[in-house]
């Protein structure tokens, strides 16, 4: 793009420089921890323990990643995280769609009342439920299982609310036409409502996937063997390995955990940010 010189009077130029200056500084402050993570991960132990620090190692130590990967069953953690996050997202989005459609389109005498109940659930913090949920899962025999990690967190309030809003914006004429064609609610949901809501469903899916991938407290409590741990829990446990593991390995392992999330974020950042900005997704 060509710079339109004629637009720039002196004071405006200064204003722009200042604006960019401030934004660059802010971006650096936000971005620096990531850069620090990366450069630490490729340093030698000696370089890690230097002050003032070296920004770039003399020789890139890729073997730190190998050591970090082998210091715990990270392959298994990956599989566990993928399984629990994706089944969790699938179930939650399905449950959200069904509820949303029911509240948007199906007439029922107690609908409004039930909707208030649904909204009330939004106010209850999940942290209150840790102990009771643990006890329930104990009775179900679900401690240290995938079900145990996934099922308590697939009920949907926010997603149902969001999709309902969207389903309500779909013109009645479309639904009516479908009903005249003899389609039932199930078919209308799957063939008309959901395909139209694809962008919203997509954003919701990505958002839920990331938040499940990142979740730490519940998987920490509910898993007690190495082979069931998810990535964040496995990563956190590395801290206790005091000898074999240095800061460079911790950073390398942190990168394993972050890579999928950062990939999703940078591929879909516009969709995710705009979804949030439009109130589509709660932080």
């Amino acid at each position: 793009m060509a710079i339109r010189h004629r637009d720039l009077s002196g004071s405006r130029l200064i204003g722009r420089v200042l604006t960019h200056g401030a934004l660059i500084i802010a971006s650096l402050v936000i971005g620096l921890p990531f850069i620090w993570m990366l450069t630490t991960a490729i340093k030698s132990p000696a370089e890690v323990h230097l002050f003032p620090p070296v920004w770039w190692p003399e020789k890139i130590r890729w073997d730190n990643f190998v050591t970090a990967w082998e210091s715990a069953p990270f392959g298994r953690f990956y599989i566990n995280s993928i399984i629990t996050s994706s089944t969790g997202v699938f179930l939650e989005v399905s449950i959200a769609s069904l509820s949303a459609y029911a509240f948007a389109r199906i007439k029922f005498r107690y609908r409004e009342m039930l909707f208030m109940v649904l909204l009330a659930a939004m106010m209850i913090p999940g942290q209150v439920a840790l102990i009771p949920n643990y006890v329930v899962l104990k009775h179900l025999g679900w401690i240290n299982t995938y079900q145990g990690i996934v099922i308590p967190h697939v009920s949907s309030v926010f997603g149902a609310f969001l999709l309902r809003q969207y389903f309500l914006t779909i013109p009645d004429s479309l639904y009516d036409a479908a009903e005249i064609d003899g389609l039932g609610h199930v078919r209308i949901l799957f063939h008309i409502a959901l395909p139209l809501a694809r962008p919203v469903v997509g954003t919701l899916t990505l958002y839920l996937f990331i938040s499940k991938w990142n979740s730490y407290l519940w998987p920490l409590i509910i898993t007690n063997t190495q082979n069931m741990r998810t990535l964040p829990v496995g990563l956190a446990m590395l801290r206790q390995a005091e000898y074999a593991i240095g800061p460079e390995h911790l950073m390398a392992a942190s990168i394993f955990v972050l890579v999928p999330v950062l990939l999703i974020f940078f591929l879909a950042q516009k969709q995710l940010i705009e979804g949030i900005a439009s109130g589509a997704v709660k932080g």
Binding site: A72, Y134, N144, I221, N224, M237
Partner: peptide, 22 residues
């Protein structure tokens, strides 16, 4: 063989395991 963290962590995990029957 399964690693359970430092002594204190292992003890917590064992208590949790006993509570859960695993």
């Amino acid at each position: 063989s399964q690693f359970q963290g430092a002594y204190a962590d292992l003890i917590q995990k064992l208590l949790a395991g006993l509570a859960a029957g695993t």
